[in-house]
Simulated scan of single mutants.
Amino acid sequence: MREFFTRRGDGGETGLLGDERIAKSDLRLEVLGSIDEANSALGMARSIAVREESRATLLKVQRDLYGLMSEIATTEKTANAFPKVAAEQVEWLEAMIAQLTNSTSIPREFIVPGDTPSGAALDVARTTVRRAERRCVALFQEDTQRNPEILKYLNRLSSLCFVMELSENQAASGKDSPTFAKQERS
């Protein structure tokens, strides 16, 4: 029987992609954990998305995030063994944002999340990606040798989540999301 634990982390350390071990409180692990949470939130959104295009896009993004996490988790010795986030991946996100923006009604005001399950899940994913981006900025302030495409990717990903939320809401409900400015008076 295969065991799903090694006991190597019981002392508060974990391994990177290489021989190096670091404390579980290390900022790099905080970044990795935040990206992992974002990936889980994106998976939840994908599981309930009503648009096939949304599901396919989210699956590609989730796979990209595994590559992004591996880049952050490498050591100096293993850095060249793993792919790096490339400008083309950021450009792909930008193209997806533009495509959805052209086919989706975009409000000028803040929207109120929660119109549809898939839209709400994408809003949770958006905020989780934003947190991962903030943690990543802190890491990059300590380690300026990091790939700048990682920050660009996370920034564009949160924007993609927003327009996907609007698109999913419109596809599921046939109407635009309510905005903060359009409050009903009682």
Rank of each mutant, 00 (worst) to 15 (best):
L59F: 13
Q183R: 15
R63D: 12
L29R: 02
T78H: 07
G18C: 10
R7F: 01
F162G: 05
L17W: 06
E109K: 11
R131E: 02
A125D: 04
S173L: 13
E71K: 12
F180H: 10
R2F: 11
R146F: 07
P148G: 10
G67R: 12
M1Y: 08
I72R: 02
A49H: 04
R185D: 11
Y66R: 09
S186M: 07
E109T: 05
G43Q: 09
S105K: 14
A138D: 13
G119E: 04
L100I: 03
T78W: 06
L58D: 00
S118N: 08
P107F: 10
L68S: 03
N169M: 12
E30K: 10
I106V: 15
E71P: 02
D115Q: 15
D123F: 11
A23P: 05
E53Q: 14
D143C: 06
A45E: 08
S47A: 14
R55F: 01
S70E: 10
T6Y: 05
A41I: 02
P148S: 11
T75P: 02
A171N: 04
A95V: 03
K175N: 04
A181C: 10
E20M: 09
P107S: 11
L59Q: 14
L160K: 08
K84R: 15
S40M: 12
E76I: 00
S34D: 15
K24Q: 12
L59W: 10
L58F: 13
V124S: 05
A38E: 00
F5Q: 06
F110T: 09
E91V: 06
F4C: 05
L32K: 07
T75Q: 06
R2T: 08
G18A: 09
A172D: 13
E52Q: 15
T128K: 05
W92T: 08
Q170Y: 04
Y153S: 06
R63F: 03
Y66W: 12
A121G: 03
Q89F: 03
S70A: 15
D36C: 09
A98M: 05
E3S: 10
S177C: 13
I150H: 00
N155I: 08
A171L: 06
R156E: 03
A79G: 02
T179A: 10
A138V: 04
G33H: 08
Q99K: 14
R185M: 11
G119V: 07
E91Y: 01
S177R: 00
Q62A: 09
A79N: 04
V31D: 01
R146T: 01
R131L: 06
